[in-house]
């Protein structure tokens, strides 16, 4: 019996590490090839880089070409503010939609869920033409507002599912104690949402951080460019300059990777806490 268990355990480890290698292979290739020239890369993507030849050359050129410091500042501001606004407004809205089963709320919820499937192409031109005529383009703040709007559907959908399972009793007693709806939401419900807040946070951070199309439509001047917009210089009409692009992507990923690794702890912690209650 014990032997059987050990074999099973061994198989589990083998399986998971094979999958992991498959999942990580593109990253491995990306990192080693960011130290090569595009030509070396095309010739043999598996060869280890000869560091003395290219070294950090691709990183330096990507850093300069992307105007990295400016771009990362823009990306950070846009991502951070958008995500915070989404988390705040969507959790409040989801809470209200769950707790008040009015007809209008049901319609609103259905509309929000359906909105997640609107193909962006269907609203792209109307969107830019409305905001363009109102002269509201080329500003981070408008972009943030747009992300706030586009982020509602998914965030409310996730929050809605989670809040449904929170028992009513605590809020009811708080309301009896004279708390307003707002107070009871922020003092009782909001803290319970921590795991799902972190999950939505991560998913939205990744979405906004990496988004290309929307900022490319809204942000016109170079000074406003975000990180994904800055990688444009590695793409030409017919080809891609892979080597500096790889370096540029590694530079773009590092900040979100840090955010992810940092908050992963909280996801698990939060999820466990949520489960105990």
């Amino acid at each position: 019996m014990k032997e059987k268990k050990n074999v099973f355990k061994f198989a589990k480890y083998v399986l998971i590490y094979i999958l992991l290698i498959l999942f990580m292979m593109p990253f491995y290739l990306m990192v080693i090839n960011s130290f090569k020239t595009t030509q070396q890369f095309v010739n043999n993507p598996f060869s280890l880089p000869k560091l003395e030849k290219v070294g950090f050359g691709n990183y330096i050129s990507a850093f300069n070409k992307m105007n990295f410091l400016n771009a990362i500042t823009n990306s950070t501001i846009i991502t951070l503010i958008s995500v915070l606004l989404i988390l705040l407004t969507a959790s409040m809205a989801a809470y209200f939609l769950v707790r008040h089963k009015w007809k209008i709320n049901k319609i609103i919820f259905a509309t929000l869920v359906a909105s997640m499937i609107v193909p962006f192409q269907a609203i792209m031109i109307p969107l830019v033409s409305i905001y363009g005529r109102l002269n509201l383009m080329n500003s981070k703040w408008i972009l943030i507002f747009m992300y706030m709007g586009f982020g509602q559907g998914f965030a409310i959908f996730i929050f809605h599912g989670f809040i449904k399972n929170i028992p009513l009793e605590m809020e009811e007693s708080a309301l009896i104690d004279g708390c307003s709806k707002i107070q009871s939401f922020f003092q009782i419900v909001f803290p319970l949402l921590k795991p799902v807040l972190v999950t939505v946070l991560i998913l939205d951070v990744l979405w906004i951080w990496n988004d290309y199309l929307l900022p490319s439509l809204v942000l016109l001047s170079p000074i406003e460019r975000t990180l994904p917009l800055s990688t444009y210089s590695f793409f030409t009409t017919y080809s891609v300059d892979y080597a500096p692009l790889m370096a540029g992507i590694v530079l773009t990923i590092i900040p979100v990777l840090i955010v992810y690794l940092f908050s992963q702890k909280y996801i698990i912690e939060g999820v466990v806490q949520g489960a105990i209650k």
Binding site: F145, G149, I156
Partner: peptide, 11 residues
């Protein structure tokens, strides 16, 4: 706030 942003941007 949700509804305004959602309506202006998507709806």
């Amino acid at each position: 706030p949700s509804l305004i942003a959602f309506s202006c941007v998507l709806l």
